[in-house]
Computed example of a mutant assay.
Amino acid sequence: MNRLRWAAFPAAVFLFTRAAILAFTSWSLRMDPRLHFDGPKLLEVPSLGGLCRWDCLYYTHIALEGYREPFWTNFFPLFPLLGKGLSLLTGLSVPVALVLLANLAGLGALLAVYRLFLEAEGEEAARAGLALFAAFPFAFFQAAGYPESLMVLTSALAVLLALRGRHVAAGGVLGLGVLARHLTLVAGLSLLAAQLRERGLHPRRFLLHPAFLGLLLPLGCASLYMLYLGLSRGEPFAWWTHRKEGWGELAWFGLGDLLRGKALPLEVSLYVLFSLVPGAGAVLLVREPRWRVLAAFAAGLMLTIWTVGLAGLGRYSASCWPAFLPLGVWLSRRPSLLMPCVCAGALLQGLFLYLFAHWYNIN
Score class of each variant (00 low, 15 high):
M151V: 03
R197G: 14
L191P: 12
L185F: 15
E69L: 15
F141R: 10
E123L: 05
L192A: 10
A193N: 11
G108A: 02
V152M: 07
F133K: 02
T184F: 08
L64V: 10
L89W: 05
A63N: 10
A180M: 04
G175L: 07
L174N: 08
F141V: 08
S93H: 14
W72M: 09
R164A: 06
S190D: 10
A135L: 05
L192G: 09
V152Q: 09
L130I: 09
L161N: 06
G177C: 10
L179M: 10
P80Q: 15
G83H: 13
L118W: 06
I62C: 13
E119F: 04
V186S: 03
L189C: 07
A131R: 10
G129C: 08
S155A: 14
G177R: 04
S87L: 01
F75V: 02
L64I: 00
R115V: 00
V152E: 00
F76L: 13
L100V: 14
A158K: 08
L130C: 08
A158F: 08
T73W: 07
A187H: 10
F76W: 15
A97R: 05
L192C: 02
H61L: 13
T184G: 10
L196Q: 03
T184W: 07
C56F: 03
G106Q: 05
A63W: 01
Y67G: 11
F133S: 02
A139Q: 11
M151A: 11
L153P: 12
F140C: 01
F117I: 11
L191S: 04
